[in-house]
Design a protein around this nucleic acid. Structure first.
Lengths: 206, 206, 206, 206
DNA sequence: AATGAATGAGCCTTCATTCAT
DNA sequence: GATGAATGAAGGCTCATTCAT
């Protein structure tokens, strides 16, 4: 009974994730998703209410994964020096959210939300981006030896966040920096972002 | 006659620019554009062949403006120290492509292209992003005292480019960093990116 | 087992009656009914074959009740003067088919059949309306002192029938004659119809 | 330019009128209408916004015709005895709204509204039914020699109204009173309703 | 040259119904 | 016997585009 259901529902979820990540909410049609999942046109309505309901579920799954990411980085870095904390955060993020075999589509979903926000935008910001951004601010404050409310902290966090979000898995990057976009270059990229950012933040001290 | 014709064409181009920048190619309808331009439903097809033709023209106009931007920064920086060159490039970019009263929609158009590429993507990359990226690489090479082919150069350019593209005029930034998203904060943001990036690049020397 | 089975069947019948009466065959969905009855989506098809089968059963129940109504009035009026017969028929009809606590939905079902006939229309006419109409014709013939085949008889019956069907429990009446649509006004309405009709029929004598 | 438009628009209006009158708003599909009008599926949306917009226009046309009906009867009866006024109203109504070659569909549309009200119900009541009902009340008050606010007036008006609405052009009537439903019987029916109702109202005097 | 009407493909959704268990 | 999942036909509507003038 629920066995077959789970399967269809999951197949829909999986197909939708791939397609939404690739082309965005508006571009992907319910028919595309159902065909990719080997299900009937009405299956989306049955299992998720409507297209937006399916999108919500896809997004929520991504959100859960990403939320865990920040928590994991925070745990692993606990008690360590801020330099190490930053290194850990960047590495965990790259490992979980960018590398193949993990969930690179999360990233793509967020890029779509950024360009063409849906009503689900708030969810993404509050549950994924804000926690990570807050943690980045904590690290930056520690590095700068100042309060989180200091104006420099937000700028520092922004600079790191930018390097994590933009250059990865998007058509611009692939075309502009084919070397850096190779899967094998990811670890090197992470190391660079850490070193670059640490130096950048230190320069904000005076 | 051709006078009024040109007027209509221009109004269409203007309306399309605003709308495409705000909501992306797919979301905006031909009817929206024609209505905003006070033109007939068939006007787009008449003047531009089809919707994509209009989009191409809009993009081309943006591209010309942005292309000039990099050239202007290059000219202004000619013969100066690489630190100054970077400062000039960032400032010119912010002034021309982000600040209100200039052409902030260029930036938004590119964000849309990044999330949901159209066949016009190549144009944007080759004529706008690549020149700027190449110039960034030249500056970085100069700062690092190495050849442009050095692996570090591309990473350095990427880090700067990221900070220029992501944190500005998008809903994520507006929600995550309301302070930095204020129009008045742009100059401070530019200064920060320059200082942060210079320190980051210098740290790559050893 | 068959005990619970019957219960479900009855709940479906009851829910369907209410909903069909309120909104008509086409408007009500199988899901609405099943939900209202706390039953499975497939329950209607299981118990009644299809939606129309359920409607048929609902209608049949209504028909049985209405058929009894005319019979009861006929019995009660047996041997009495035609004026009394008419008074009894009207009163019994109002009591059984219109007043709250009885079965006002029968009336509503018929109004729906009249506006948007289903294949079940014949059933309603032959088993409910025709008997009552025939009895009305008998009474009218008696009052007119003529044969049932007399052309006047049908017109007289029609005039009474109209006053029984139209002014009750429909949105037009509720909006046009709010006073007369109140539950408490029903007895007064019945008395009026009787007096008005008797006078009307008598006037047809010459 | 507007010549062909008018034609298509009018064809749609005509087809929709026929179909809505026959089967009701919900049953009729936009595709049915467009096919009957020899137009494209999108034509309804283009000319009327949506299905409900088309229905509104159909109803409005019916309403205009019916509104004029009451006014015409009122004019023709001006200064005459109430008995004559009633006779005129009934005759004009039958001529304009029931007889073939006039607009029998108006009647059918109203029956549908009664059974399954749409948001357009108010329009029908206020612009068509209420004026006629009010005029009927005036006539009844005159006949009874009392004020319009008298409780008897509303009942009298209801009895007449019922006989005008129910027995005509509906499947019940056709099946129950085939004789009276014949086109040739309409004048006789009108005469009967007048005589029957006058007697009925007079009987309410004491 | 330029328009407003008309087109038809395609989208999301809903529905009564059937299927597998 | 009874259920919840799955189906596919169809519905209203939107859109970029084309046509007739």
């Amino acid at each position: 009974m629920s066995g077959k259901d789970r399967e269809t529902r999951d197949r829909l979820l999986e197909a939708a994730t791939t397609l939404f990540a690739a082309d965005g909410f508006k571009t992907v049609t319910v028919r595309d998703i159902c065909q990719a999942a080997g299900a009937n046109v009405a299956a989306v309505n049955y299992h998720f209410g409507d297209k937006m309901g399916l999108y919500h579920d896809v997004l929520n799954e991504a959100i859960e994964k990403m939320h865990g990411t920040t928590e994991a980085a925070r745990d692993e870095g606990k008690g360590k020096a801020p330099e190490e904390k930053l290194e850990i955060l960047v590495r965990v993020f790259i490992d979980r959210a960018v590398k193949q075999g993990s969930a690179p589509w999360i990233h793509q979903l967020m890029m779509h939300e950024m360009a063409e926000p849906t009503p689900a935008l708030d969810l993404v910001v509050e549950r994924v981006l804000r926690p990570r951004f807050d943690y980045l601010k904590e690290i930056a404050a520690e590095l700068l030896g100042c309060d989180c409310a200091d104006a420099r902290v937000e700028k520092a966090a922004m600079s790191v966040q930018s390097q994590l979000m933009l250059p990865i898995k998007n058509p611009f990057a692939r075309q502009l920096m084919p070397e850096l976009s190779r899967e094998e270059a990811l670890d090197g990229l992470a190391a660079h972002v850490v070193r670059f950012s640490l130096a950048g933040i230190c320069a904000m001290r005076d």
